[in-house]
């Protein structure tokens, strides 16, 4: 499953295309053109950070890949299979291979940690077994392993709404990884967390993506996190990719291109959007608990 399913064609020659997005376009019913002909290819495992201001199309992009948002035009090839043309059964089968991690964690609050993790295996069990919470012993075993790996050993019977934000996101990560995905879609994983927890979570996402040789597309609003944890950075602006390179190539002029002009060396107090959005969801999270 872990990327080694099929031998790489051509060996050391041209690398296998894991994900290829061709002229992906999304126009919402409101007329907003969220994605405007995006071309994008992933050939190797590792973390691809997607940055860009709010409304640049990051979230739409990531949701188009597993068709939580239906693309208007374009092709999405996962290991050569076009996801856009799939029927419902085919789409479900494809989604089983794509793990997703969310900004708001999206755990089912009244369920236990174990149930939330095993929800990642729903694509592999029937409806009756779902009702009876019967999962394959191997899946339960994998869930225990993953909980241990994300640092939540012994938490399996806790209810999800009893966890802190960082713990919830760890459950979210375990839920995505128990799918044994060929691709990870990670949407603003740290935006609801405090800065310290955010770094821990990003480090965990990166370690797991590397360990399992799984490519991960990570939407980030925090450029510093992208610089530190990504192998490659893609910049979105107005629905187009305006930057696609290694993090070291991110300089002020490229940031200008992605975000529009701004003084990038101003002290953080002068940068209310990013600091406030880092702190706000933590209180939201407390209120929701």
């Amino acid at each position: 499953m872990e990327g080694g399913e099929a031998p790489l064609p051509g060996g050391a020659g041209e690398k296998r295309e894991r994900l290829r997005v061709e002229s992906l376009t999304k126009v919402y019913p409101t007329g907003k053109r969220a994605l405007d002909g995006v071309d994008f290819t992933i050939r190797e495992p590792g973390v691809v950070a997607v940055i860009g201001s709010s409304g640049a199309g990051k979230s739409t992009f990531i949701r188009c890949v597993n068709r939580l948002v239906e693309p208007t035009a374009g092709r999405i090839l996962l290991d050569g299979v076009d996801l856009v043309g799939l029927d419902r059964a085919g789409l479900r089968a494809a989604r089983r291979r794509i793990g997703m991690i969310f900004q708001e964690f999206n755990l089912v609050e009244r369920l236990t940690v174990m149930e939330n993790v095993l929800a990642g295996r729903l694509g592999h069990v029937g409806l009756v077994d779902t009702l009876r919470r019967r999962f394959a012993p191997a899946d339960v075993d994998a869930a225990f392993d993953l909980l241990e790996r994300v640092g939540l050993e012994g938490f399996h019977d806790r209810r999800a709404d009893a966890l802190s934000g960082g713990q919830r996101q760890r459950v979210g990560i375990a839920r995505a990884l128990i799918q044994r995905p060929d691709l990870l879609l990670v949407d603003e994983p740290t935006a609801s967390l405090d800065p310290r927890t955010a770094r821990q979570i990003m480090r965990l996402v990166r370690e797991l993506a590397v360990e399992r040789a799984t490519p991960a597309i990570v939407n980030l609003h925090d450029v510093a996190l992208a610089r530190e944890f990504a192998d490659r950075v893609v910049g979105f602006s107005a629905g187009r990719i305006v930057f696609d390179d290694a993090p070291v190539a991110l300089d002020d002029s490229t940031l200008d291109r992605i975000y529009g002009g701004e003084n990038w060396h101003a002290p953080p107090e002068d940068d209310p959007p990013s600091t406030s959005s880092g702190a706000r969801p933590t209180t939201l999270d407390d209120a929701g608990a």
């Binding site: 597993n66 479900r92 989604r95 291979r97 997703m100 999206n106 729903l122 839920r175």
Partner: peptide, 9 residues
């Protein structure tokens, strides 16, 4: 949305 994303019916 998370459940749909796992490929659940």
């Amino acid at each position: 949305e998370a459940m749909r994303a796992t490929g659940a019916r």
